[in-house]
């Protein structure tokens, strides 16, 4: 059969609209130079983990979370574009480095209004930065619920 290996799932990281990385207004993401993935244009500021795994690092400015999934994928969840410049303003971390997390657990709360007011995009790219491990990807884009909707079905190579 085509599906010899079990397909795995990544959840949407926020309520909103899931879009391809190519729609992220930042070349580092849209050109897929950092890796493969999807992005969510959020309508609500609660950000969920897409996978079961471990929180590997949180930037000092609390806008970027790197996760190591239990199946060995390196995942970057980056809230907003250029938001490193907010130096933490508008971001509340709900996890710590080293925490074990389940898909759907809350990683952070972001104040989308404040981020917008400061002139930054709120789109949340989710990037698998070791995409060489993926053998098959199937994205489910469009309207999603954070921590509930399936955004990506994948298989490891």
């Amino acid at each position: 059969m085509l599906f010899q290996k079990k397909a795995k799932i990544m959840l949407a990281v926020a309520d909103g609209n899931a879009v391809p990385l190519s729609e992220v207004p930042d070349e580092a993401f849209s050109s897929e130079i950092l890796g493969k993935g999807f992005a969510v244009k959020p309508t609500s500021g609660t950000v969920y983990s897409p996978v079961d795994g471990t929180v590997e690092s949180i930037t000092e400015s609390r806008h970027a979370y790197t996760l190591l999934s239990d199946d060995g994928l390196d995942i970057l969840v980056h809230i907003g574009i250029d938001t490193v410049e907010l130096k933490g303003e508008g971001f509340l971390s709900m996890v710590k480095e080293g925490d074990k997390i389940r898909a759907g657990d809350v990683l952070a709360r972001a104040d989308l209004d404040l981020i917008n007011q400061k002139g930054f995009e709120t789109v949340i790219p989710v990037v698998i930065t070791n995409p060489e491990r993926l053998s098959k990807t199937d994205f489910s884009l469009g309207k999603v619920l954070g921590g509930k909707s399936e955004a990506l079905r994948y298989q490891l190579g």
Binding site: L34, G35, E56, S57, T66, D74, L76, T129, N130
Partner: peptide, 9 residues
């Protein structure tokens, strides 16, 4: 590894 580099802080 991006994740590893970022964890240098």
């Amino acid at each position: 590894r991006l994740l590893s580099l970022m964890s240098l802080g």
